[in-house]
């Protein structure tokens, strides 16, 4: 066990990496996504984006509500290709 603090557990991104990227000039959530793959794993940022928002707010001096969240991308939960490929309609 090290003393690393993980913010994004899907993509293994640490607090230190996020702080470093912000120092390099990536000062929005969208840019942190591009730079680090933050929130691009199976949970789609559910676990990490709010935490990253806090880090951004602290480091940039922007208020928490000023920091925009990225566009939500479908599907909201992972769905298998087989289900998506299916032509059968559920009749109620």
């Amino acid at each position: 066990m090290g003393d690393k603090v993980f913010i994004c557990r899907c993509e293994d991104i640490t607090l230190e990496e996020i702080e470093q990227a912000i120092d390099e000039g990536y000062t929005t959530i969208e840019e942190l996504k591009c730079r680090l793959r933050l929130g691009m794993g199976p949970c789609q940022g559910r676990g990490c984006l709010l935490l990253a928002k806090r880090v951004l707010s602290k480091k940039t001096g922007k208020t928490y509500s000023e920091i925009k969240m990225p566009t939500t991308r479908p599907p909201l939960i992972p769905v298998s290709l087989g289900v998506l490929a299916s032509d059968k309609k559920n009749k109620k």
């Binding site: 789609q44 479908p74 599907p75 992972p78 298998s80 087989g82 998506l84 490929a85």
Partner: peptide, 23 residues
């Protein structure tokens, strides 16, 4: 999503259990 899933699983049927996470 439907068209891509259908064509992709036609090309590689064993991928049908693999989950799409984002479009």
């Amino acid at each position: 999503l439907h068209h891509m899933a259908k064509t992709l699983t036609h090309y590689a049927p064993s991928l049908r259990h693999v989950k799409v996470i984002r479009q």
